[in-house]
């Protein structure tokens, strides 16, 4: 007999079948556009190396990490909010013999699946264009998964708490966009002034960026690997606890 969490994951996959084609296609579009724009366009203007490597090679791992984050956020804001407020699927699930952990775990499992497939598509595409320089690059996938969970789990908790979907748009404006811009995706955080640099260090994204960049370039990261992993795991675990409490409160009143 399948585990109840697996049954919830299966439900989300069945639901995804409806849109997987367009979703898979768009997973390849961003890396392709990146290669075109940075390989041909921007690359011609950025003279010399960034942090000792060609700009394209610098930016690709950053974009892999930021893709993981973007997918994680996209899949855990409106879909989670909608499962409470619009299609109310969580309420039908809690009436079945599932625990809160199954409902949450199954949905997060699906988000993980989306993160992994999107980052894999990015990695494969950019590798084909020669922007990846080490077999260590394969380690980018588990790191992207962990980074995704570190972002998705607390976002589940947030989406389960907010009274309207306006708050979800705020999350994009005040967390996602700043992180994408300042957490080391496009330039090294060392070039930021003190306070901003510390904000980058606090963000989960930078830790993912540093690890994935080390992996695709085949060099050592700026921080200790264990430190990065522990930091991301802390976000993931704290997020899981928050989300569990929020889901329980919403679903079992």
């Amino acid at each position: 007999m399948a585990h109840p969490t697996a049954a919830v994951l299966e439900y989300h996959l069945v639901s995804y079948r409806r849109t997987w084609r367009s979703s898979a296609l768009s997973s390849f579009i961003l890396p392709l556009l990146t290669m075109l724009s940075f390989g041909v366009g921007v690359g011609a203007y950025v003279r010399g190396d960034v942090a000792g490597v060609p700009y394209l090679d610098f930016i690709v791992p950053g974009l892999i990490a930021s893709t993981a984050m973007q997918v994680a956020i996209a899949e855990s804001t409106f879909p989670v909010f909608g499962n409470f407020e619009w299609i109310k699927i969580y309420f039908s699930q809690v009436a079945a013999p599932l625990r809160i952990a199954d409902i949450l775990g199954g949905h997060l499992g699906f988000v993980l699946f989306r993160i992994l497939t999107s980052t894999a598509a990015f990695l494969v595409t950019t590798a084909l264009f020669g922007a990846v320089h080490s077999w260590w690059a394969l380690a980018a996938l588990p790191v992207a998964a962990l980074l995704g969970l570190a972002v998705a789990a607390p976002t589940f908790g947030y989406a389960a708490s907010v009274p309207s979907d306006n708050y979800l748009a705020m999350l994009f404006r005040f967390a996602v966009i700043p992180m994408s811009l300042f957490a080391g995706v496009f330039f090294p955080v060392e070039s930021l002034p003190g306070v901003l640099r510390w904000l980058a260090y606090v963000s989960p994204l930078w830790h993912g960026v540093d690890l994935i960049r080390a992996a695709t370039l085949g060099v050592a990261p700026a921080w200790s690997v264990a430190g990065h992993l522990a930091y991301l795991a802390t976000w993931a675990v704290a997020g899981w606890l928050l989300a569990t409490a929020r889901f329980r409160r919403r679903l079992t009143i």
Binding site: E10, V14, P97
Partner: peptide
């Protein structure tokens, strides 16, 4: 609402093992 009538039943049945 997005799933078919049948899928609503089959996916729900899976929650019961």
């Amino acid at each position: 609402q997005e799933l078919t009538v049948r899928e609503n039943l089959t996916t729900y049945a899976r929650f019961f093992g």
